[in-house]
Simulated assay, not measured.
Amino acid sequence: MKSFLYPKLILPSFTWVRPDDGAEAQKVHEWIQPLTAENDPEKSKAADFVVVGVPLSRSSISVSGASEFPEAFRRAWKGFTTYNLDEDIDLSEMTALDAGDVPMHVTDIRRCHDNIIAASAALHQHFGTSTVCAIGGDHSITAMMIKGLHQAKPEEKIGILQFDTHFDLRDMSDNGPSNGTPMRNLIESGVVEGRNMYNIGLHGFFNTKDLKKYADEKGVNYITLREARKKGIEETVFDCLEELASKVDTIYLTVDMDVLDIAYAPGVPASTPGGMTSAELLEGVLAAGRHSKVKAMDIVCLDPLKDTNAQPTVKLGTHVFLTFLTGVMLR
């Protein structure tokens, strides 16, 4: 396909054969349309949601097959309907496009990151009113997706709502642009101020004291999982978004699946005990999706190769995505 988006993007390695009988979509794989020559570029500008795969995990500190999630995510669509019984709404009433994947270099991580920035900028420029949903990949992709958003809309101040077990503020000189440094990367590059970052879900023995010190120095806002549970996940998210909305133009939601307890998400490279339950994460994501300033999101650090045969983590990651879209539709 020839268009301005390509070769910044490539067609996904896996696509569903969609029914051509004109029947109303009932399953997610029947609803999300691949971006093709027929609907690109002008006809697609009004899409409500745009999905892009970002299959990179070479930049992960721990061994990770998170690069396999975009394909596993697409394959999981067939197991979900577009109708959300809890909210009594049907996502198929909105338009969703699959823009394909960001191309990755075999060995050059910097080149991969540059490709993500370029693809993100192109998507946000073209789909100016659409919600862009990036499917990672490890957490290093978040910094690059946000840098692309910043390139596309330099006049907008960006804030971040982060669900995570970790600060992801490791020293760039020691770790480079890895999945342990995306938030520090954004702070040090001047793209996002520390005071406009809100991290929910930190817990246990999985962060060092020097990272907390750096967070405090930069004004990063963080709410431990214990604090969020006492207050209520939904209320915590709403309060964070209210504060953020008063300071920024655009809010980017990043969901690191390692925020979940290992019992709920075995397919995560850095899985830990004591994390969120599935219900807590879905509640938080739904609340985030309902806020009008949340205009982009990603799901990262989900490794299908570590998942069990039933693929519970892949299914949960897909559920997180659909729950976020439910929140957007509820606006």
Rank of each mutant, 00 (worst) to 15 (best):
P182Y: 02
D216Y: 03
I135Q: 05
A152E: 05
N179I: 04
G159M: 13
L149G: 05
Q162R: 08
L202P: 01
N185S: 09
F206K: 04
H139K: 11
A152V: 02
Y83Q: 06
K218N: 03
K212N: 11
N207H: 09
I160G: 06
G100A: 10
Y214F: 15
S173T: 07
G148E: 08
S92C: 10
H166D: 03
R110S: 03
N185T: 06
N179S: 14
K153W: 03
I146S: 11
A134Y: 14
E87G: 00
L91T: 03
L123G: 01
H203A: 10
R111V: 04
G100F: 07
S189W: 11
S173L: 01
N185Q: 13
R111F: 02
L149E: 11
L202G: 08
I116Y: 02
I141R: 12
K209S: 13
A96Y: 08
T81G: 15
D168Q: 00
M104S: 04
L97R: 11
H150E: 14
T81S: 12
A215E: 10
D90N: 15
A119W: 07
P103T: 12
T81I: 06
I117C: 05
D210Y: 12
G136L: 13
D171H: 04
L186N: 00
S189N: 07
M94N: 09
G180Y: 02
F163Y: 14
D98I: 02
